[in-house]
Simulated assay, not measured.
Amino acid sequence: MKIKSKIVFVLVLISIALLNSGCIGEGLTADQIAEKMQEKQANIEDISATVHMTISIEGGTQETEYQLYQKNPGKMKNIVLMPEEMAGQTTVSNGEKMWIYDPAANTVTIMEMPEVSDEFEMDYASIIGDLLNETDVSLVGTEDLDGRDTLVLMLVPKEEDNLYGSGMKVWVDDETWTPLKIEMGTENTYQITVEYRNFEVNTGISDDEFEFEVPDGAEVIEVDDFDDILPVSMTLEEAQNLSDNEILTPSYLPDGYELNNVMFSNTSIVANIDESVTLMYSYDDNGIIISESFYNGEIDQKSILMESETVSVNGVEGDFYSMYGGSGMLQWEIDNALLTLSAPLEMDEIIQIAESME
């Protein structure tokens, strides 16, 4: 079912917890556990929840919240509740068509949903095997969470270099094998908490919930083919020939870095963006990524919710974000373009690269 593909990661955690606690017996193979997961999920027809996420990084804490509805087959609806500047942004799909509404720009993007090939189905057994190899998983207890019985799991990574920080704690709904809360992070660096509040299953959500009526006066943007919004890989020369704007490139790069890919798109679901291009430079296992979005109206930087430091790029104010692992991200404007530069470098060198792009 479509719902399970969105929560497969935590379903894996649940299956391991049940295995460790003896609820489904010991000695089951990954294939048998995957089969158990699918049996449990087959009973879910619809779900609704308020999803609350808190991200704490050096420099500040940001919270986001949205209302979530999902129903088989393939229906979904998300409404942003916070932060205030993004409230009301709505994404709706009835399984065949998708609407994306931006109330600030008063635009509605409408596109046909692509068919998903069977080859994109999740390989649950492989995911379970990988997780077992990467973490030590233990069932630490049970807890009532928002009126629902949960299993509480702890995952401790076996290696320092991992995706889970110093560890992950998960509260798993005993009835549906769905996550109700996840905590992960690294002490003194970052912490992420995701909570599924007011979680309900099989309440008979109407199909009408997954239809969208375009508000009066809203601009409608039709996308005929989903593939049209995906960026295409090409050479820098090909991208510049297609672009109606001057694609900017740095005249300074640290030693060893070379351009290895360019992604270009002249269709966007984001209001006021005519074109976007991404330049990817690499050296050994490190990469510098420069994204340029060309606007035909007001430039919107609302999507980045982290705290930033104001810096100067050739006399223009920019926002510098300190990222996990010593990387940095810089965002600034040149004429009608919003540029974003991400790299595993110190702030001074990132600014030096940016200032060479005039």
Results as ranks from 00 to 15, higher is better:
85 E>R: 14
194 V>A: 08
82 M>F: 04
130 D>F: 00
90 T>G: 05
146 D>I: 08
136 D>T: 12
127 I>F: 10
192 I>G: 00
111 M>E: 05
152 V>A: 03
170 V>Q: 04
132 L>E: 15
198 N>P: 05
116 V>F: 02
88 G>T: 13
80 V>W: 15
129 G>T: 12
143 E>M: 01
162 N>M: 02
83 P>Y: 02
186 T>P: 04
107 T>A: 00
202 N>A: 10
108 V>Q: 02
161 D>C: 04
79 I>K: 02
184 M>N: 00
100 I>R: 10
186 T>W: 07
173 D>F: 00
173 D>T: 00
111 M>K: 09
201 V>W: 00
122 M>Q: 09
190 Y>D: 10
157 P>C: 13
131 L>G: 04
103 P>C: 05
158 K>F: 06
202 N>S: 06
140 V>I: 15
147 G>L: 00
180 L>V: 12
184 M>T: 12
182 I>D: 10
181 K>D: 01
126 S>V: 14
119 E>L: 11
91 T>P: 06
168 M>V: 15
134 E>N: 11
104 A>H: 05
117 S>H: 09
112 E>Q: 12
161 D>W: 00
96 E>C: 01
182 I>W: 08
121 E>M: 01
155 L>E: 03
75 K>C: 05
95 G>K: 02
153 L>M: 10
99 W>E: 07
98 M>S: 15
117 S>C: 11
112 E>M: 07
182 I>N: 09
122 M>I: 15
122 M>F: 14
175 E>S: 14
83 P>D: 00
97 K>F: 10
196 Y>M: 12
90 T>Q: 01
169 K>Q: 14
163 L>T: 14
191 Q>S: 11
148 R>S: 10
148 R>A: 12
127 I>Y: 09
114 P>E: 03
189 T>L: 10
116 V>P: 01
105 A>K: 04
157 P>N: 12
203 T>G: 13
117 S>R: 10
83 P>F: 01
118 D>K: 03
203 T>I: 12
106 N>H: 13
174 D>V: 06
120 F>N: 13
86 M>A: 11
87 A>Q: 13
156 V>W: 06
106 N>V: 06
95 G>A: 06
199 F>G: 01
81 L>M: 13
130 D>M: 13
141 G>E: 09
190 Y>A: 02
145 L>K: 09
188 N>D: 14
158 K>G: 04
85 E>Q: 15
84 E>Q: 15
124 Y>M: 15
197 R>W: 01
101 Y>R: 07
197 R>P: 10
165 G>T: 10
114 P>Q: 08
189 T>W: 13
102 D>S: 13
146 D>W: 10
195 E>M: 01
114 P>M: 05
113 M>C: 11
203 T>N: 13
180 L>H: 10
157 P>I: 13
171 W>V: 02
174 D>G: 03
118 D>T: 09
127 I>H: 03
150 T>P: 03
132 L>P: 11
168 M>K: 12
198 N>T: 05
143 E>S: 01
194 V>I: 14
145 L>H: 08
194 V>F: 07
151 L>V: 08
173 D>C: 00
169 K>P: 03
119 E>Q: 12
194 V>Y: 04
74 G>E: 13
148 R>Y: 08
131 L>P: 05
165 G>F: 06
142 T>W: 04
129 G>V: 07
182 I>G: 04
177 W>K: 06
